[in-house]
Measured scan of single mutants.
Amino acid sequence: EEWMVEKALMVRTGLGARQIESYRQGAWIEGVHFKRVSPSGESTLRGTTWYNYPEINKFIR
């Protein structure tokens, strides 16, 4: 699984929702560690946020 939603990321990493938000707003790079995608497939600020687990795992190492 490369891309996953927040709940799956929480299960895989043990991070809480606030921790994920903090990383997203600070250290993680949009387009690398996470992306927002609307149902139409376009990038957007209001779409579902998807997280790239392999890239996040590399960051944590």
Rank of each mutant, 00 (worst) to 15 (best):
V11W: 11
S43T: 11
A27E: 10
V5K: 12
H33S: 00
I29D: 04
P39D: 14
Y23F: 11
T48V: 14
T44F: 09
E30N: 05
W3Q: 01
E55W: 03
A27V: 11
R24W: 03
W50V: 13
N52D: 02
R24V: 15
G26M: 10
S43E: 12
N52A: 02
Y53K: 02
A27L: 09
E1Q: 09
A17W: 10
N57F: 13
G16C: 14
M10I: 09
K7P: 06
V5C: 12
S38M: 11
I20E: 01
L9Y: 02
K7I: 09
E2L: 08
T49P: 05
V5S: 15
V37D: 12
Y53G: 04
G26D: 11
A17E: 08
P54H: 11
I60Q: 04
N52Y: 06
I60F: 11
V37G: 09
T44C: 09
F59H: 05
R24C: 12
T48Y: 07
G47N: 10
R18P: 08
W50N: 03
Q25F: 07
S38Q: 12
M10P: 00
G14W: 03
R36E: 13
R61Q: 14
Q25E: 14
M4A: 02
R46I: 14
T44M: 11
R61G: 09
V32D: 02
R12Y: 08
V37F: 08
A27F: 10
P54M: 09
P54C: 10
F34A: 01
Y23C: 06
M4Y: 04
S38D: 13
V32K: 07
K7G: 10
G41E: 11
A8R: 08
R36F: 15
R24F: 04
M10D: 02
K35F: 06
W50R: 04
E30I: 05
R18S: 13
I20Q: 01
E30C: 04
Y23W: 08
T49K: 03
T13E: 02
E42Q: 10
G41Y: 07
T44Q: 12
G14H: 05
G14F: 03
L45P: 10
K7C: 13
G41A: 09
R61K: 14
G41C: 07
G31Y: 05
E42L: 08
I60R: 03
A17H: 12
L15Y: 03
T48F: 07
W28L: 02
T44P: 12
V37M: 10
E30L: 06
V32T: 06
H33G: 01
S43H: 10
T48S: 07
W3A: 00
W28H: 01
I29G: 03
R24D: 02
K58G: 05
P39M: 12
I60C: 06
S22N: 13
K35I: 13
R36C: 15
N57M: 15
Y23R: 02
I60Y: 04
R36M: 14
M4C: 07
S40K: 09
S38L: 11
I20F: 03
R61Y: 09
I29R: 06
A17P: 11
I29M: 06
M10F: 04
E1G: 10
A17R: 14
S40W: 10
Q19I: 06
F34R: 00
M10Y: 04
I29Y: 04
G26E: 11
P54K: 09
G14Y: 03
Y23T: 01
G16H: 11
G14R: 05
K58H: 07
G31D: 05
W28V: 01
V37I: 11
S22H: 14
N52C: 05
L15C: 04
E42R: 05
N57D: 15
E1N: 10
G26T: 14
I60T: 04
M4V: 13
P54G: 08
F59Y: 07
T48E: 15
S22Y: 15
R18F: 10
T13A: 04
W3K: 01
Y23Q: 03
V11P: 03
L45C: 11
Y53A: 04
M4P: 01
Y23G: 03
A17N: 06
W50S: 03
Q19D: 10
S38P: 13
Y23H: 05
I56A: 01
I29S: 05
R61H: 13
V32M: 05
L45M: 11
Y51R: 00
T48N: 07
S43G: 12
E21M: 08
I56F: 02
R36V: 15
W50G: 01
K35Q: 06
R24L: 14
E55V: 06
P54S: 11
N57Y: 14
S40F: 11
T49S: 04
R24G: 03
E1F: 08
F59V: 04
P54E: 12
I20G: 01
S22L: 14
K35G: 03
A8C: 12
L9F: 04
G47M: 11
Q25V: 10
E55F: 03
R46N: 15
N52T: 01
Q19L: 07
V11C: 14
Q19Y: 04
R24E: 08
G14K: 05
L15K: 00
P54L: 10
I20Y: 01
E1D: 12
N52H: 06
P39C: 11
E6I: 14
T48D: 11
G31N: 07
T44L: 10
Y51L: 01
A17V: 10
M4H: 02
G47P: 13
F59I: 05
L9T: 02
M10W: 04
T44N: 13
L15I: 04
M4E: 03
I20N: 01
F34V: 03
G16K: 13
Q25T: 12
A8M: 14
E42M: 08
T48R: 07
R18A: 15
R46P: 15
E55L: 07
H33P: 01
K58W: 06
W3M: 01
M10A: 06
Y53Q: 03
E55P: 04
F34S: 00
T49Y: 15
I56G: 00
S22C: 15
R24M: 15
V5F: 07
G41K: 08
G47V: 13
Q19G: 03
G14D: 04
V37S: 10
I20H: 01
K7S: 15
F59K: 03
L9A: 02
T49H: 09
S43P: 12
T49N: 06
R12P: 02
Y51S: 00
Y23D: 02
L15M: 07
A27S: 10
I20T: 02
E6H: 06
E30Q: 06
P54Y: 12
S43Q: 10
V5E: 15
N57H: 12
Q19T: 06
T48M: 10
R12I: 11
S38N: 11
R12V: 10
